[in-house]
């Protein structure tokens, strides 16, 4: 699904070049849920922006669903973002004066869907995050957790192949955090490909595998042997527990089944890193 090879990115401060990403290689399979953990300023958002076709690396290649996307025109990139990627931005990025429904509908305004269809899909996405009752409310009046759920609904509304989430649990209290993580585990069970950036170890745990970004380089993250998941998160993180919880559709059962049987995860025959790999594979 995603193959990032030898990607570097730096910023120029006067004459000095400050590296942000240094020779990053990343392979993510369809249906995988990958979390990226790292300290503030380590380049997590930069990586996600590159994955989300919002930013371009200085060097390297990026193949998205078999297509080399770095050479695409800005119009084609916009279409890619519009139809194939759902982005949950850091700090919500809702339009404060618009209501919840309008915020969620925003990406569809740039599609060719009819107004009715746009409304239907927006409501569907809001239902998925449990925000259907607040469609008419202005974004500015929502709580942090509610804002994040609306932001997730907006990322889902175009039914994307890839969901990118930048700190979706940042600045939220425990209850709100758990609600958000619950949504992500549901999405995982629907078979979506997800990359979630966080600096919160507990949140990172619910993914199939976790990567660490440090000093511009990526490596597999080790949670430490025997460190138990906190009680509330255990249910979310453990696929077997998740399978018995909510979401009664067939897709989730299948996803849960493959996830519990680690080796049967879809598409893992590629050069992509496995959850248990110590180092990110390099070709």
């Amino acid at each position: 699904m995603i193959a990032l090879q030898s990607v570097t990115k730096h910023i120029t401060d006067g004459r000095r070049k400050i590296p942000i990403l240094d020779d990053v290689n990343l392979f993510i399979d369809k249906g995988e849920f990958v979390s990226v953990i790292g300290p503030s300023g380590s380049g997590k958002s930069t990586l996600l922006n590159i994955l989300g076709l919002l930013d371009k690396p200085a060097t390297g290649s990026y193949v998205f669903a078999g297509e080399s996307v770095l050479s695409l025109s800005s119009g084609r990139l916009a279409a890619f973002r519009n139809q194939r990627i759902g982005f949950v931005f850091q700090m919500f990025m809702l339009l404060p004066r618009m209501n919840v429904l309008e915020n969620v509908e925003l990406p569809l305004l740039y599609s060719s869907l009819s107004r009715r269809e746009r409304r239907r899909r927006s409501k569907e996405a809001l239902a998925q995050v449990g925000m259907l009752e607040k469609t008419g409310q202005r974004a500015i009046h929502l709580s942090g957790g509610e804002k994040q759920r609306v932001a997730i609904a907006r990322a889902l509304v175009n039914n994307p192949e890839l969901i990118l989430a930048d700190e979706p649990t940042g600045n939220l209290d425990d209850d709100a955090k758990h609600a958000i993580l619950h949504i992500f585990s549901q999405l995982r069970r629907q078979g979506r490909t997800i990359v979630m950036v966080t600096h919160d170890v507990e949140s990172a745990r619910i993914a199939d595998r976790c990567l660490r970004i440090h000093g511009g380089r990526i490596s597999a993250y080790d949670f430490g042997v025997g460190s138990p998941a906190p009680a509330g998160l255990a249910a979310l993180a453990s696929p077997s527990a998740a399978a018995s919880a909510t979401v009664p559709d067939g897709a989730s059962d299948r996803a849960a089944a493959t996830a519990s049987d680690g080796s049967a995860a879809p598409g893992l025959t590629s050069a992509g890193a496995r959850p248990d790999d110590r180092e990110e594979a390099r070709p």
């Binding site: 919002l54 916009a78 973002r81 519009n82 139809q83 990406p107 740039y110």
Partner: peptide
């Protein structure tokens, strides 16, 4: 600026 950036991020084309 934020709004414009957001619109472009979710797929607004330049001409739009």
């Amino acid at each position: 600026t934020r709004e414009i950036g957001l619109r472009k991020a979710v797929g607004a084309k330049s001409y739009q």
